[in-house]
Amino acid sequence: MRVWLGLAAILLLALVVAACAGHAWASPADLWRALAGDAALRSRLLVEWRLPRVVAAAFVGALLGLGGTIYQGVFRNPLAEPYLLGSAGGAALGATVALLVPLALPQSWLLPLLAFAGAWGATLLVIGISRVAGAVDAAGLLLAGVAVAAILGALRSFLMLALSDETVSLQVVLSWVLGGIQTPTWALIAGGCVGLSLGLARRLDVLGLGEAMAIAFGLEVRRFVMLAVLAGSVIVAAAVAYGGLVAFVGLAAPHVARWLVGPLHRPLLPASALVGAIVVVLADAIARSALPPAEIPLGLVTAVAGGPFFIVLLARRLRS
């Protein structure tokens, strides 16, 4: 209980700090006035522009935390992560197509839809490759993921070069791909994703006992893995469609959450969501305020912080 209250308090604090942060810093008193309905331009800007972005950052972080936890649970591998396994890259490719290729559907539909198709397809491809290669261990899966992610990244760059002209701004896509929080209208999506992942919790625990034991405990392993990968892809696609490519949060959040609440998935999933939200809210605050008046891409901030984290985890795993 103390852990949950602590996490909620830290998230609240992070939200306040992030709402104050920007190239023009606001004080908590400014924030309070703005929330109380002050009509001054400065207050209106805070409420109408900065706050939605801060809340969106929290949702994107929560989704990345959930997605990372599901991927680690399904692959039974603490190094699995949507970004490293190519799933986020697939979502980004799909989203780039949606942004650049004129298609019959409205973009607000296409973006999440193609992002999902990309995330799902990339993950299935990685699973397929590592199965065909006979490597289902951590290293094989990661290598397949890295290769697929590289190919997808190259495809995305090519699309951006080949398709962008004056009518579509390359700048928009570029800043989106590097991770930039879009204004949200989708608290419902986040809620749905939490519900979806909690529905997988017990079966993720059983799968974590190992395949033989999971089968003996009545889990239909193949079917469940496919279902969980599908759910994970939906969540990753939502995160990428609204937040761009944000590296390593999906890796780090479940680890931190596991230290706090242990490895059972029912507490782990919401805890990862909270940790992911805290991390992305703070990273987004840094992205907006570190180099005024420019804005650093969010994905760069999380990569600088998360890369070393991954290296430490990898080193510890290789040593053991």
């Binding site: 059983v206 974590g208 190992g210 405990f217 490895p263």
Partner: peptide, 24 residues
Amino acid sequence: YLPQHFGPHWDLSVAELLEVGAGR
């Protein structure tokens, strides 16, 4: 069913392992 080899992928506590076992 008691398998020949058993090693959970996550470092669960004894109480947590029993809980997962009871969950079926």
